[in-house]
Simulated assay, not measured.
Amino acid sequence: MLSVVVAPWAGVAEPVFVRNPDVLHDAASTMKVAVLAALWRSGVNLDADVPVVNHFESAVGGEFGNNQDYDSDPLPWELLGSHVPLSLLAERMITHSSNLATNLCLARTTPRAVADVWRRAGATRSSTPRGIEDYAARAVGVNNLVSARDLVRLIRSLADEPELLGLLEDNDFRVDLAAGLPPNTRIAFKNGWIPGARHCVGLVHPYDCPPYLIAVCYTGPLASGADRADPAARLLARVSAAVWTRRHEICSSA
């Protein structure tokens, strides 16, 4: 299943292209944007030191932990047992897609706060009811889900929070949508991958026309779950490249 939404960035313009925009996909790491926004808006002191641990409260009771082998970022694991600024964890959650950092950030906010991020964005279907690798919750149907339309709405909701968009521009995984753009094209984006699913949402700033939003979600056998060498990542790059060739039409048709 391939879902695509393309929309102008300016104002509240409707998408100019949609394909399966409201189909739900496993959120993978795209949900980390909602966690970031919830943490930022909570007023918590991001400079405060917090303990780096690997035990978290499950959404259905009990505790769970992350598996280092499934994490794309070694740094938080090297910091286990120490105290670090919460801002560092928030940064690694986005720039290096750290699962451990994500759950540590979730522990400093609330599921209700994350749900409110989606609500304020105007999302109608997406939700983030549990942490990453909370398998007990997943076993009873408590899942993190996103649609391409809601991901575009989520990024649009950050318009007045340039600090968050700036963090998304520092994403280290320059694959998926970024790989389909000319070198050095500015893009604030978050990708996510698991076996069977590959997604990416971004705000693209072309050099010769107004910026635009794009979200591509893919669920299917092409997605290997590799962080950079995933065949599905190349699919997303091709979609991004095709949209780029028609970038001048996005705002003119809005």
Rank of each mutant, 00 (worst) to 15 (best):
R92V: 05
E249M: 09
N144G: 08
L106A: 06
T110K: 15
V204L: 01
D69H: 12
L177I: 15
T95L: 09
A226K: 15
I214Q: 01
A37I: 07
P211F: 03
F56T: 13
D170A: 15
R125K: 06
S72P: 09
R238K: 09
A48T: 07
G192M: 05
V84F: 03
W193C: 03
I194R: 01
R186P: 04
Y207H: 10
R119F: 04
R108L: 09
R156G: 10
V4T: 06
G192D: 08
C105L: 09
L222F: 03
A179Q: 05
M1R: 14
L36C: 04
S72M: 09
G11K: 00
V152A: 11
T124N: 05
L167K: 04
F173V: 13
S126T: 00
F17R: 00
L46Y: 02
H248V: 04
R108C: 09
A123Y: 01
L46T: 05
A223Y: 12
S3E: 03
M93V: 11
I214W: 02
V201N: 00
R125M: 01
L24T: 07
L158G: 12
G225C: 13
N103R: 11
A232T: 08
T95H: 09
N144K: 12
A10C: 02
A178H: 11
A48S: 11
V50L: 13
N184K: 14
S87D: 06
R41F: 09
V44F: 07
L203I: 01
E161M: 15
C217R: 05
A34N: 11
G131H: 06
V117N: 03
G61N: 05
M1S: 15
R119W: 06
N171H: 15
D116K: 01
G192I: 05
S72V: 07
N45Q: 10
D49M: 13
F189L: 06
L2I: 14
P221V: 11
G61H: 07
M93R: 03
W193I: 10
N54T: 07
P182A: 08
V4E: 02
Y212H: 08
G62M: 08
V5R: 04
